[in-house]
Amino acid sequence: MTTVIAPPESPANSPAPRPSRGFTFPARFLPVIATVVLFFAMFGAGSIRYEGFSSPQTILSVLVDNSFLIVLAVGMTFVILTGGIDLSVGSVVALSAMIAASALRSGWSAPLVVVAVLLTGSVLGLLMGLVIHYFEIQPFIVTLAGMFLARGLCYVISVDSIPIKNETFTSFASGTIEIGDYFITPSVIVALVVLVIAAIVLHMTRFGRTVYAVGGSEQSALLMGLAVARTKIGVYVISGFCSALAGLLYAIYTLSGYSLTAVGMELDAIAAVVIGGTLLTGGSGFVLGSAVGVLVLGLIQSFISFDGTLSSWWTKITIGVLLLVFVLIQRLFTRRTV
């Protein structure tokens, strides 16, 4: 099943099979395009069905409500691109919000808190990456331990919810950026900046290309003399960093830290990445797709809130169905090209 586009030519005058030239649409873009089409189809359907849905503010609000999830999905994309998985992100979001809230309460300055939180997340990611690579233990179980660890640390800090009253944080939370008649929040800007940086790192640096190479074939990457160890550990550091940053955004969004928040958020992040067209086996996908995946998830919620008669559990069912559809598409896709 390897000869996908070997053109049928007469053997007499073709010394070598030639790849088809001209307009070839790279197959790796197809899943992302499917997701974008899905997004606009949903938006269109909503606009027809519900009054007020067609406003651009609907999309902007989805961004506002899900900026932390975009950051989380970006980090998860790096990990999944290498063929790994990170189950700890939801707990790290909760832990970051907890650390921020409690440190602010005990009088730390806002910049110091931000640095401390980002550092904690990155170090946690580094530790998991080291264990995964050097001890050759499955990412699933290592990050499961990371998930337990971060959740446990939340409870060590406090069992109760801690409100955030720091002025820097509250003003950041209440700030809006007007775009004509519409608005977004500073968090959205942060998320978009993270997205752009991630895209640049993935596509324009050696580290980024190595991420794809490791996901394509770790063995090949090793034999090509690439920095496999650094890359594999690096993606968990990035995921840890993104989780911490998402935790800060989440803390700003809710203006509190609470041990029981963000339970299962890792599943939302993984779902967004898969719906965004990234192969769970690694090697193929884009951070932009993951961001669109988050928007699709957000739009489902908008649908349900606009409708009023639909119950909230349809969100989960719809996500599950979308996940299934995309997994099946991926299965077909990998069968055809491998």
């Binding site: 559990w313 349809w314 997994v327």
Partner: peptide, 21 residues
């Protein structure tokens, strides 16, 4: 032939929604 972790993730996500339904 879907990887077990992904295949069962589908029901893990949708399942609680079904239970609520």
């Amino acid at each position: 032939g879907i990887q077990p972790i992904i295949a069962t993730l589908v029901l893990m996500t949708a399942g609680r929604g079904l239970a609520m339904l």
